[in-house]
Each structure stands twice: as C-alpha cells, then as structure tokens.
Amino acid sequence: MTKDFEPTIVAFLCKWCSSAGSDLAGVSRMKYPPNVIPITVMCSGSVSPLYIFNAFQKGADGVLVSGCHPGDCHYIKGNFYARRRIALVKELLDFIGLESERFKMSWVSAAEGTKYTEIIKDFVKELKPLGPQKKLRRDQ
C-alpha cells in the first residue's frame, strides 16, 4: 500500500529566490514529482511556526520552507530570523516524535532550479516509505 502512497508536500517559497528558482526549474523544463504545492510568500522570514503546524494538521505529509541563501535575502536579513525560528520548530517537532524527514528547510537561489528539483525529488523519495502523516493530522 505504501508503494502507491503519494505524499502531499506544502512548500513555502520566498518570492525573490526560491519561488524564482522553482520558476527557473520550469523554464529549464526540469522534471520533478507533482506532489509539491508551492505557496509563495514574501520572505522566508514571514513563515510563522503556526503555518507549519497548520499544514501538518491539515494533512500535509511534508512541509518545506525555502528562502534565499544567507546574505542574499531580498529583505537583507529575513532569512536569518527564519533560520533561527525554523531550527526551533524543527527541534520541537522532532522532540514530540514527528519523523524529522517530514519537515525541511532549504536555501534555493533564483539560479538554483536544479537544486530545487533535487530537493523535491529527494523529499518525495524520503516521504514515500513513511506513509501518510497521521500524527499531527486532524481526523477528517
């Protein structure tokens, strides 16, 4: 059964780097699995921990937060705050026993279409054997 399992990933992409990077993947006609639904936000620094918890609660099997590389943030330093905040969220989710593979952060620049593609491919590959995320999921 898990073989046919197709995970759903919610990806919070910053507008200036990671969303642009995913655009580049598209322009370059790279291929990755359709399991990821992007939500473009202004900055990785604007991703509240509540968004992440909420996505898992609503049944996301994986959540990705992606921003500009340190030093490249369009808003100078938003990604630095994101890095700290996301680290804490990760520690907390790990601690309550959510598989650490389910929550990821990445730096993807506007030039890194390939990297974005790889990240999504690997993410889906890692999530498949885990099966559906039921721990935080609200009963439907």
Partner: peptide, 11 residues
C-alpha cells in the same frame, strides 16, 4: 540572530 547561527539542518 547571529551570522554564525547553525544551519546544518538546511539544505
């Protein structure tokens, strides 16, 4: 934040 905050969890 600090510039040197850890980011080994980030890809």
């Amino acid at each position: 934040f600090k510039d040197e905050d850890p980011e080994d969890f980030i890809r």
